[in-house]
Structure formats: C-alpha cells, structure tokens
Amino acid sequence: MLLWQKLLAQQVAAAVAYRYWRIYVTLTDAGGGSGGVQINEVELRATVGGPDLTSPSTPSLASSTLAPGYGPTQMVNNFLLGAPWASTGTPSTGSPEWARFDLGTPQVVREVALHPSGKPDEEGSSIGSVIYAPRNFIIQGANDGTNFTDVKAFTGQTAWSNTAFRSFAL
C-alpha cells in the first residue's frame, strides 16, 4: 500500500458516527461587537459534495433565538429566501452560541455546508447580514445530545457571500 493510500485509510477510519451534530460558534465576522449569529441554511453531508442529511423535519435546538420565526429550524427548512436562525447573544469563547441537529440515528458527517444570512427575500429586502456569519466555530458530535466531542475547529472564516454556501470538510 502506498503512503497516500495509508493516510486516506486512516482518515476514513477516524470518522465517527454521531446522532447529534452541533455548530458551536465563538466569534462572528462582526468581531466582538454586538449582534448574534445568523445562519440561513445548514447542510450536513455524509460525503463531500453529497446530499444533505437534514430535512425540514430534522429536530433542532439552539442556545438562543432572537424572536419567533428566527429559530434553528430555519437552518434546515431548505428555503434560502426566508429568515435565518438568529441568536440573541454575541458569541465568545466563554459564552458561545450554538445550534444542534438530531439526525435520529448515528451518522458519519464528512462535510458541513453553511449559507450565511443576508440573502434578499422575495421582495428584494435583505434579511440579516453576512457580518453575523461564523468566523470561529467548532463542529461537534454526540450520541446523547449533551456530551459533545469536537470533530473539527475552523478559525478566521471571513469574506462570506450571501449568494453561496461555503463547505467545510471534516
């Protein structure tokens, strides 16, 4: 077996299936200023570039919600023109904002795709702002919904666009 094949085999073997997946945000593109996290859509994918494991019926929970209609279910409703999930708090390392998704059974996730807020709605008005997209965040998994394990951390994520998903391989 060639070295690259061994490394690929190790990476594939290291993947762990979790029932619950969480985005744990410690900083947005707004920096330390006021304003919570805003994410319009989340896709959890079993393969890089593969289909979304979430659906509008995926149970979700968040650390906080700005107002009715801005809850975490907004991130799995497959509707980019609607309101985003918007948290009430400004995330920090000591006080993160997070959203959790219950896939029903343990699933391996190899890629997370995020679409930030700020996409124009049907009338052309912008809902939210890309400055509230996650800058520093951790993708976490758990099988009990409480005791999460860090899967992969991402830092310094800037220059979000309100017209496209950004994908993050795990």
Rank of each mutant, 00 (worst) to 15 (best):
A153G: 15
S34R: 06
T73F: 13
D144T: 04
A142Y: 09
S60K: 00
A15D: 14
R22Y: 00
E43F: 02
V37H: 07
T28P: 08
L44D: 04
G31V: 08
S87C: 12
W21D: 07
E122D: 11
K152G: 02
R22C: 04
G124T: 06
V108Q: 13
N143V: 14
T28W: 10
G141N: 05
T90H: 13
F137V: 02
P84D: 07
P59T: 05
R166S: 15
Y70W: 14
R19C: 03
L114Q: 01
L3C: 05
R110P: 05
W98G: 01
L114S: 01
E43C: 03
P84A: 10
L103V: 06
G89T: 12
M75Y: 00
T28G: 10
Q74V: 02
I127G: 02
N136D: 15
K152L: 05
A13H: 14
T26C: 08
L81E: 13
G89F: 12
N77Q: 07
V42D: 11
S60R: 00
P116S: 11
F165N: 01
P84F: 07
V151Y: 06
P91D: 11
G50Y: 02
P72F: 13
L7H: 10
Q107V: 01
A46V: 01
A164T: 10
R166T: 13
S60W: 01
K119M: 12
A133G: 10
R19V: 03
K119W: 09
F101S: 03
S95H: 15
I127V: 14
S63D: 09
Q10A: 12
V76W: 02
G36V: 04
W4H: 14
T47H: 04
T93D: 05
S125N: 15
G49R: 09
A169H: 05
D144S: 08
D144Q: 10
N40H: 08
D144M: 10
R22K: 15
A142Q: 11
A113H: 01
Q11L: 08
A153N: 11
G145Q: 09
A15T: 07
D150P: 07
W85G: 14
G69E: 05
Q74R: 15
I131Y: 09
Y70A: 07
D29A: 15
A86T: 15
V109Y: 10
